[in-house]
Structures are given as C-alpha cells and as structure tokens.
C-alpha cells in the first residue's frame, strides 16, 4: 500500500529548484507534495506526483539524478489533535519515523495527508493495519 516518492538531487544554489519545477511543469506533471532537505551545498527535493513514471523519465532526460523511495501516505482528519492521534498509533506499533511532511487534500477538504518515511515500510504497514487508518495507494494519489 506504500507509494513512490521521487527524490531528486539538487545543488544548493539559486535557480536549481526552479530548473526542476520547470522540467515537471513542461511535462504537465501535477505535484501533490514537496519537501526539501538541505545541507550547505546540496539538497534533496522529495516529491509526490500524479504520474511517477513520466516524472522520473523527464527528470532523467534533463540530466537530474533521481531515485524512488517507498513512503506511507496516511489520511488524517483536518482538526485539532488529528496528527497527535495518528502518531499515537505509530508509537504503539513502535514504528520510528525518519522524516515526514504534510499536504492538504485537493477535493477532500476534511483531510490532510501525511507522508512518512520509515525504515521498513512493509513491516510498518502490517503493524498499522487494522487500526482504522486510511493508507493511500498510488491510484489514490493520482486521483486526489
């Protein structure tokens, strides 16, 4: 049930992020979520898109280094305490989170979505199943 996140290597210099978004824009790729991690001289852009295959292709053609990473996308009610409840499940299941970021759902105003990177995606999924969580598939992402 995990989804694919595209990780893109970027130099930490003016215009580099814009180069990447330019390539995606040209190809008509719709981004669902974006998160940046950076050091002083380089960064990684982590993106969730509607068409993973096409996005990776156009990025590689434009000489970007990109790789795919499995992440969990989980729906969370957009209300006070929503994330806290969700993290309680992670706690209970003893799943360690490497990093996470959020985005708001397009047509669904009642939910936000959290992207989680964990060490073992499959094991985490098994532990979190049956808790009434809505874990999104790649198709869900394309249709949001």
């Amino acid at each position: 049930m995990s989804i694919k996140q595209i990780s893109v290597f970027l130099e930490n210099r003016p215009g580099k992020l814009k180069n990447m978004t330019g390539v995606l824009a040209q190809a008509g790729i719709d981004m669902r979520a974006l998160s940046l991690a950076e050091t002083k001289d380089f960064g990684i852009a982590r993106i969730i898109v509607d068409d993973v295959f096409e996005a990776v292709n156009v990025l590689k053609e434009a000489d970007f280094v990109a790789s795919l990473t499995s992440v969990l996308a989980v729906a969370v009610p957009d209300e006070p305490g929503g994330l806290d409840k969700l993290l309680a499940y992670f706690n209970e299941a003893e799943v360690n989170i490497e990093y996470m970021y959020a985005f708001l759902g397009g047509n669904d105003a009642k939910h936000a979505y959290m992207i989680f990177r964990v060490a073992d995606t499959k094991a985490a999924e098994a532990k979190l199943s049956g808790k009434g969580l809505r874990i999104l598939t790649q198709e869900d992402i394309a249709q949001i």
């Binding site: 996140q5 990780s7 290597f9 991690a37 050091t39 380089f42 990684i44 982590r46 280094v65 990109a66 790789s67 990473t69 990177r117």
Partner: peptide, 15 residues
C-alpha cells in the same frame, strides 16, 4: 558530479 549510483534518498548517507 553526483551519479545515479552514488545517490540515495538518505541525506545522512550522502553526507
């Protein structure tokens, strides 16, 4: 230059 072989999503590993 960064290469596909040397790239990973793990920031700590690249560093």
């Amino acid at each position: 230059e960064m290469t596909p072989e040397m790239f990973t999503d793990n920031m700590g590993e690249i560093a």
